[in-house]
């Protein structure tokens, strides 16, 4: 089904974009948002597979991913806040001291 291949292709491209974003951008918050983009791409792939194989487990895993993404954001942002307070900058190139 051309629809499935197109949606899977979109999911792969979004995942690759998210991965490139984490590697390429310097701002810590932007890197977090690119990780969210990767999770969204995975959710699209899961929904496509769930519809293709006519089972429910894909959609159930989507709900688990929602919970995991919310928990991850709830912890990652305070960590970034503390880091930015230490170096007074959000630039990850400046987090280069493994002390204190």
């Amino acid at each position: 089904m051309a629809d499935t291949q197109l949606l899977l292709g979109l999911s792969f491209v979004l995942f690759a974009l998210g991965l490139v974003g984490v590697m390429v951008r310097r701002n810590a918050l932007v890197m977090l948002m690119c990780m969210e983009l990767m999770l969204n791409a995975v959710i699209l792939a899961l929904v496509t597979f769930s519809l293709e194989t006519a089972t429910l487990s894909g959609a159930v895993l989507v709900f688990l991913i929602f919970v995991v993404a919310a928990a991850e954001i709830a912890i990652a942002i305070p960590i970034v806040l503390q880091l930015s307070r230490q170096r007074s900058s959000l630039d990850v190139e400046g987090y280069d001291r493994l002390q204190g």
Partner: peptide, 10 residues
């Protein structure tokens, strides 16, 4: 306003 605004890419 930190350096990551001026130079976006690592």
């Amino acid at each position: 306003r930190d350096p990551s605004f001026v130079r976006r890419y690592s």
